[in-house]
């Protein structure tokens, strides 16, 4: 028994199939779906979007935003001048995902669609205020990624919708002179590892080194990727120093809820997340 597999030639065709087969799984690169092959029951069918024209590529928009197609691979992100220049955080993340083979197949949209708490790009999407562009035969819907992600591996993807792209509207601010970016993936080993803690952070400093904007995206510290909003709020309007760094790290407890599992412990995750936030704030001083 083989699984029905459709590889649409156009986005319109893809949307038609999506509407017709609500229970089929969408494959954007296969690096999640194929791991399940033979382990979990096969899906009713597969809509293979890998390489679909219109879903691939990095595009600077007229409004100044950057649009990255959902089926854009990590390798493509790494190779893109626009990503390297405007979203250095995302380039750094892409470089640490899996191995080269995974980077060549795995896609940004796939990572968003699976929405695992350990999805490597997701903290960066939070830190960069990314929006998810959803498309269906009814039209286009834009949702902040923070809202799109609703829980453990669950999203606000509605029947008939596909993830078309990620949009980065605030790239001008985040790539400005006073912007600081930081990324750290703490995995079980140096490469090809599942994350134990991730921090993707952006801060914008004014001429007097006062923090005007702060984004702290964390992964693997609760059931979904999460922004440390309490810590962010505490930073805005302040100048970084050791005391602020300490307060920010302590404020994490409002937003994270790590667990013990086969990869690490709640205590370690809590401790390391706090230390990384403190380290980031200290770097702004």
């Amino acid at each position: 028994m083989t699984t029905p597999w459709i590889r649409p030639a156009t986005l319109d065709e893809a949307l038609a199939v999506r509407e017709e087969h609500a229970d089929w799984r969408v494959l954007a690169g296969g690096t999640d779906l194929m791991v399940d092959a033979g382990r979990r029951p096969a899906p009713a069918g597969v809509i293979d979007l890998f390489g679909l024209p219109g879903l691939v590529g990095v595009e600077p928009m007229r409004d100044g935003s950057l649009r990255i197609g959902a089926a854009t691979t990590y390798s493509m992100l790494l190779a893109s001048d626009d990503v390297r220049r405007h979203l250095p955080l995302l380039a750094a993340v892409a470089r640490e995902v899996g191995a080269w083979q995974i980077q060549a197949r795995g896609t940004l949209g796939g990572n968003v669609g699976t929405c695992s708490p350990v999805g490597d790009t997701l903290p960066a999407l939070l830190a960069l205020d990314a929006e998810v562009e959803l498309v269906s035969r009814k039209g286009v819907r834009l949702v902040a990624f923070d809202d799109f992600c609703t829980g453990y591996r669950t999203t606000d993807l509605r029947p008939g919708e596909l993830i078309a792209a990620l949009r980065f509207g605030r790239r001008a601010l985040f790539a400005s002179e006073g912007a600081r970016h930081a990324w750290r993936k703490v995995g079980t080993r140096r490469a090809q590892s599942v994350s134990k803690v991730m921090l993707a952070a952006v801060a914008v400093l004014d001429d007097e080194r006062r923090i005007t904007c702060a984004r702290l995206g964390l992964g693997a510290v609760r059931e979904r990727p999460v922004r440390a909003r309490a810590a962010e709020d505490l930073l805005v309007g302040e100048r970084a120093d050791a005391a602020l760094a300490q307060r920010a790290s302590e404020a994490l407890t409002h937003d994270i809820a790590p667990i013990d599992d086969v990869r690490s412990t709640a205590a370690y995750r809590r401790d390391v997340a706090a230390r990384l936030v403190r380290r980031f704030v200290l770097s702004l001083a």
Partner: peptide, 8 residues
């Protein structure tokens, strides 16, 4: 690549 790695 711009170096954005948070060092310790």
């Amino acid at each position: 690549l711009p170096d954005v790695r948070l060092g310790s």
